[in-house]
Design a protein around this nucleic acid. Sequence first.
DNA 1: TATTTATATAATCATTTACTTATATTTAAA
DNA 2: TTTAAATATAAGTAAATGATTATATAAATA
Lengths: 104, 104
Amino acid sequence: MPTIDEMSESLKLLSDKTRLTIIALLREREMCVCDIVDLLNTTQPNVSQHLKKLRTGGLINETRRSQWIYYSLNVDDKPYLKPVIDELPSMRDQINALKSQGCN
Amino acid sequence: MPTIDEMSESLKLLSDKTRLTIIALLREREMCVCDIVDLLNTTQPNVSQHLKKLRTGGLINETRRSQWIYYSLNVDDKPYLKPVIDELPSMRDQINALKSQGCN
DNA sequence: TATTTATATAATCATTTACTTATATTTAAA
DNA sequence: TTTAAATATAAGTAAATGATTATATAAATA
């Protein structure tokens, strides 16, 4: 049972539009930073900083594969967030439009 | 189906500790401002301003009964928030400790 | 009708936050 | 072993945010 502080911290992470969009993207599949940068309308450092917050807050996992760092959702320990994430609009179309399906 | 913007706005309202505590209180029962002020460790204007945000954001209802204004949860149109609210720690003990059960 | 009680609003301030630009780091490849 | 690509970090800035203090409004009561 999470405390109010823990819950508000998770909710704050989800309350930013950019981060919430990243979560919506990662719901479809894991992604490297450059995928996310391509899909979002912002800069690479901005994405990196948001990913760091999500990672520190425990909402996503990070794993390096050669030069790419892949991020994936990690919310199984916060079941109360599942319906929120499930309700996010689908990003499938945007993801499918990703040139060459994966960074370079 | 809410947009990312709508969802992030609702989540931002829930992401503040004071507001999240107010939501936890209102989950037990409707309350007037002075009840909430008594239960929270902050000032009346601060509570009023948070209530205004929650009201404007559509998460609570307001109804005046003579000199008191009662606030109550209004989240039935956002079912994805229900598990979040259900997960909030119980405030029953604090509410029961409220001197004389209702303001004055 | 003057006073008290409940609540809202306004103004101000300090902190936090998201973003940008510039630079560093790490890995792969030429 | 230099270069390029992917990502992170740092520094700076503007805007948003939460809290406080002071004041206004509205309803009830003396």
